[in-house]
Design a protein around this nucleic acid. Structure first.
Lengths: 203, 203
DNA sequence: CGTCCGCTTGACTCAGATCAAACTTGGTGG
DNA sequence: CCACCAAGTTTGATCTGAGTCAAGCGGACG
């Protein structure tokens, strides 16, 4: 659904499937933009390295989502992309994307809507990163990213990169997780994190 | 140029000019989306209020730029917009925008490109906000937002909202400004801030 | 003329960073 | 099957830099 506008290209043989090992580079900041990717399976991390050497995770993209969508009109990729797990990507030549957007009236509108949704997500991330206390920050992120009822999320090996995404060190993040659990705000069966839903009218 | 795709609507009489006083509300989070705005003159601040009551500035939009572009496909505005100075906005009904994007092949592509650029800017803001030391953070923001040669920016009354945009308190921001000046990284003639350009090959 | 802001500086506090150490887990290769 | 290693996870002690509170100045504006 997030990639409706790519369906047309899937029917032609324009795209190609490529797999990546954990830690493997998909593209690097500064490389010229040649492909748009859709994640068939796995997790990709978009990040930049600051002058001091620390890494900022700009986004963590997962199954079904699109990678490098904002780079379609750019000359160079503006951040690094690494596989966080064994991942399978579908790769679309940028030329084909351009042709699709120009040639198909609905595609460009759908693409705009997709980008607009991205902008709102990024603003939400900025809001979350602006929360001072580590517990509140992490809890907001968990609320934002969890799904289901009760809302839950699989934490298998994601915490180090989540920490870099919400602006915490690994240690602080694990401490925050422990505090949230002690406070009864979350539960951690196995590798999962389940948000304990607050009963209504109980502030 | 940022609003090329609005030119067609400017020729028809679809839009209307509206002026705002400093501090006046343009729209509030949760209101249903009725208009897209282009700033003819002035500064608008997009912000949200956190649970603890503090304000996060998500963006500061200025003359020539567009407001609420990401809300075109949304039902409700997702943040508050306030005028920071006496501002003049051009107001376009959302219906007209939709019609323009669907009806005009090039418009949707131009709009996509515009949104993609927004995404890159937002990611840059996330990167800047991730810089730990206040001095480096402010300096990066100044580099990002200044223009001209030598790069400079008019600081007239903007610092309180800049502080909220880069995640500092007013006090910390003024201290950082003072330190940067003492370190010779910036100069402050009048209300301006001028970046002192580092000669090449001098790390 | 008084009030509200923007601006500035100082003293103190505190949450998260940093450094350090240990344990678990999964995978690799002998 | 086990030794080994890398990465994730957990906990403790200490440090640091931005937040907070407080006070004062100056200019804009009614």
């Amino acid at each position: 659904m997030a990639a409706d506008f790519l369906a047309i290209l899937d029917k032609s043989n324009a795209s190609k499937a490529i797999s990546f090992e954990p830690g493997q580079l998909v593209f690097r900041q500064g490389q010229s933009v040649r492909w748009l990717y859709r994640i068939t399976d796995g997790h990709i991390r978009l990040s930049r390295v600051l002058m001091r050497g620390s890494e900022v995770v700009l986004a963590r993209v997962t199954t079904g989502e699109i990678l490098a969508e904002a780079s379609v009109f750019a000359v160079h990729y503006h951040c690094d992309a690494f596989a966080e797990s064994r991942s399978l990507l579908q790769r679309y030549p940028i030329r084909q994307i351009h042709a699709l957007l120009s040639g198909h009236p609905g595609a460009a509108v759908a693409y705009s809507a997709h980008l607009a949704a991205q902008i709102m997500d990024l603003r939400t991330m900025i809001e979350i990163r602006a929360i001072r206390r580590a517990d509140d920050r992490l809890l907001s992120w968990l609320r934002f990213r969890s799904h289901g009822n009760p809302p839950s999320i699989d934490g298998q090996g994601i915490w180090p990169s989540v920490a870099k995404q919400i602006g915490l060190t690994g240690e602080s993040l694990y401490r925050a997780l422990a505090r949230l659990q002690r406070a009864g705000k979350i539960e951690r069966p196995g590798t999962k994190v389940v948000l304990t839903v607050r009963p209504k009218n109980t502030p």
